[in-house]
C-alpha cells in the first residue's frame, strides 16, 4: 500500500479506524523512550544522528547555541529543510514551532512531521498562552521547569514533556534543577494523595486542576513520557538525567557544536541506554574528548533576561 493513498475508512469487521487520538499521540512518545533525540540542521547531520542510534531528530534552521549568539527572531525551520530531512532518514522527524504560534504548528502538521516541539528556543509568538494542542492529530512535546508547568502543558494537550534546562549552553545544571523540581513536585502530590485539602492547595499553587494533580498522585509520575533537555553535552550528562528518572534525552547543540559529533552522538546514545552500568558509561565517556566538547556557557553568571527558559507564557 502506498502512503499517499492510505484512506482512513472502514475495513475488517466494518469497524472504523481512529486517527490522531490521545492514545496514539502518547503512544508515539512511548516508542522513543530510553532513547536520544538529536537536533539537526541538515540531511547530513540527520544521517549521522540516525547512524549513531538516535530515536528521532529535531530539525532546526540553527542550533540553539547559534540562536543564542545571533539574536534576532528565531522561527520555525524552513519547510524545504524539514522535507529534505524527512526524505533521507527513516526514524521519526520532529520540528519546533514558536510558543503560542498555532499557525506554525498547523504548517508542521501539514508537512507531516511526527511530533511538534512548542519550544522556548524559538522566539515566543504569544506571551499570554500556548497552543491549544488537543485538536491536532500529531503529538506535541513541551518544555517545563517544574511539575506545575508540566501539568499545565499536559492540560493543553501535550503528549510528551521535557525539561527546559538552559538550551545552547552545554551547562546541564538547569536541566538537573528542573528535573529535580518535577520529581519533588511528584513526591509532594503523592504524599497528599489521600488528603484532598492538601492536594487542592498543591494544585492551586501549581495553577493546575485538582483532577490533574490527583492523576499524577495516583500514577506516581507524569501521565506522559518525560525527557530531559537543555544543556546536555556529554555521555555523563545523559546518564545523569536517566539516573534522575527521565525517560530519555534530547541533545541540542551538544553534538554538532562539538568537534567530534559522530563519536559524541554514538557515545551519548550508549550512555543513555546503559546509564545504570557504570563500566559502560565510562566506556561511552572515554569515546569523547573533553577538549572537543562544545565550549559552553556557564549559567551562574548569566542574566535572567538572557535565559531562554523564561521565555513564553508563565501560565
Amino acid at each position: 500500500m502506498n502512503n499517499s493513498n492510505f484512506e482512513p475508512l472502514k475495513s475488517y469487521s466494518d469497524v472504523e479506524i481512529q486517527l490522531g487520538s490521545t492514545t496514539l499521540k502518547r503512544g508515539f512518545a512511548n516508542m522513543v523512550k530510553h532513547g536520544v533525540v538529536m537536533d539537526v540542521t541538515n540531511p547530513t547531520q540527520a544521517g549521522i544522528a540516525e547512524d549513531a542510534g538516535a530515536v528521532a531528530v529535531m530539525v532546526l534552521d540553527q542550533l540553539p547555541a547559534d540562536i543564542r549568539g545571533r539574536g534576532g527572531v528565531a522561527r520555525m525551520a524552513s519547510a524545504e529543510a524539514i522535507k529534505e530531512v524527512m526524505e533521507v532518514i527513516s526514524i521519526p522527524v520532529m520540528a519546533k514551532c514558536r510558543i503560542g504560534h498555532t499557525q506554525e504548528a498547523y504548517l508542521l502538521q501539514e508537512l507531516g512531521v511526527d511530533m511538534i516541539d512548542e519550544s522556548e528556543v524559538l522566539t515566543p509568538a504569544n506571551d499570554a498562552s500556548h497552543v491549544w494542542k488537543w485538536p491536532f492529530t500529531i503529538p506535541f512535546v513541551n518544555g517545563c521547569r517544574d511539575l506545575g508547568e508540566a501539568i499545565r502543558r499536559i492540560e493543553e494537550g501535550s503528549a510528551m514533556i521535557r525539561t527546559k534546562g538552559e538550551a545552547g549552553t552545554g551547562d546541564v545544571s538547569e536541566a538537573i534543577r528542573h528535573m529535580r523540581l518535577v520529581n519533588k513536585g511528584i513526591r509532594d502530590v503523592v504524599a497528599a494523595k489521600d488528603n484532598p485539602e492538601e492536594l487542592l492547595i498543591l494544585a492551586r499553587d501549581m495553577k493546575v486542576s485538582y483532577e490533574s494533580a490527583l492523576k499524577v498522585a495516583e500514577l506516581g509520575r507524569l501521565p506522559v513520557v518525560n525527557f530531559a533537555a537543555g544543556g546536555i553535552a556529554t555521555p555523563a550528562d545523559a546518564a545523569m538525567m536517566m539516573r534522575m528518572k527521565c525517560d530519555g534525552v534530547f541533545v541540542g547543540s551538544g553534538i554538532y557544536k562539538s568537534q567530534d559529533p559522530e563519536n559524541r552522538a554514538t557515545a551519548i546514545v550508549y550512555a543513555t541506554t546503559y546509564w545504570n552500568n557504570p563500566d559502560k558509561v565510562l566506556e561511552a565517556q572515554s569515546m569523547v574528548n573533553e577538549n572537543l566538547a562544545m565550549p559552553g556557557l556557564g549559567i551562574s553568571r548569566m542574566d535572567n533576561e538572557d535565559k531562554i527558559q523564561h521565555r513564553g507564557s508563565n501560565l
Binding site: F6, Y12, L19, G112, D114
Partner: peptide
Amino acid sequence: NGYGRQRDSFSTVIN
C-alpha cells in the same frame, strides 16, 4: 513504516 508517518498511525478493532 508501511502505513506512513505518525499522522497515519491509527487504532482499530480487530478480531
